[in-house]
């Protein structure tokens, strides 16, 4: 395996990137965070838990280098070092792709646990890119988490699904089962458009914080560069011209304990909770 015996023991942290709802930016966030942490010198691996809907390798631009995958390793058909893909651009960054031909049932509990134990020995950060939903795939992705990044869009259904996932983290994670310190929760608001918030079409940062009561890690503005980055296989954080890239960089810095002021949010003038309540209720 990579780097044997360099350090006696690494204090590793498993981070799940989760949301409940689909299409909110989990994979984009996973890719950006993995790249951001690795750029800061932390040895990081990002795992695709979305078995059957393999996307992470595309977003990371390594789809043509996939030979073995997560499920092969779980089943013992390949070992970890065969399946991990080393990023060509960023040192310390590894991608652990998943299978496109299997489904979530292939995520066997013991097998996943064994893989996670192995990864913990070698990596500082293990990022689990969760599938949408609250079924087996999402449950498995969050089970081992020490820390969770809850990706939320500023709209009612996304906020509610995030709320549900936060509840599941508090009840069904390994830490909850073993009655250890609870999973650390971070809220990441993505696809945020201050203009649309002003027009009352989106929930504001304060509305979302108020509903979820989870510390805010960052606000990622809605940006065309995100789509471009996904299509070209370059994590958006590597694009210094992109507001989303810079916002992700801030979020990674905050995740590591740095103080950075929130950007990309206009001071809001009007709260729209009354409107939200009316709609949520109907």
């Amino acid at each position: 395996m990579v780097h044997k015996g360099k350090k006696e023991k690494i204090l590793s942290k498993v981070i799940v990137v989760t949301s409940g709802k689909g299409g909110v930016g989990k994979t984009t966030t996973s890719a950006a965070f993995a790249a951001g942490l690795a750029l800061r010198g932390h040895k990081t691996v990002v795992i695709d838990f979305d078995v059957g809907l393999r996307n992470l390798d595309l977003v990371m631009g390594c789809e043509r280098r996939v030979v073995f995958d997560f499920i092969n390793v779980i089943n013992g058909d390949a070992n970890l070092s065969q399946a991990l893909i080393r990023d060509k651009r960023i040192e310390n960054l590894y991608i652990f792709p998943t299978s496109q031909t299997r489904d979530k049932d292939a995520l066997k509990r013991e097998g996943v646990e064994k893989v996670m134990d192995q990864l913990r020995k070698d990596f500082e950060f293990i990022i689990c890119d969760s599938p949408a939903g609250i079924e087996h795939g999402a449950m498995t992705a969050l089970y081992h988490a020490d820390s969770a990044i809850i990706v939320t869009n500023p709209e009612v259904s996304s906020v509610r699904d995030s709320d549900r996932i936060i509840g599941i983290l508090a009840a069904k994670s390994r830490r909850a089962e073993k009655r250890e310190k609870p999973v650390e929760e971070h809220l990441l608001l993505t696809r945020y458009s201050p203009e649309r918030v002003r027009r009352g079409e989106m929930l504001s940062v304060d509305d979302v914080k108020d509903i979820l009561s989870v510390p805010l890690l960052g606000i990622i503005p809605e940006s065309e560069t995100v789509l471009k980055a996904s299509n070209t296989g370059v994590p958006v954080i590597l694009d210094p011209q992109s507001p989303a890239g810079r916002a992700y960089d801030d979020a990674v810095a905050r995740f590591l304990g740095e103080q950075r002021e929130m950007r990309f949010m206009l001071p809001e003038r009007k709260r729209l909770f009354g409107g939200l309540f009316g709609r949520a209720a109907s």
Partner: peptide, 27 residues
Amino acid sequence: TQPVRSGTQIYAKGGDLVVVAPVSAGA
């Protein structure tokens, strides 16, 4: 004392229930 999240159900059998945290829609 913790927020009651969407999808969670809490039953205080035979007594009162006191929540010192927000209770989400869907809880």
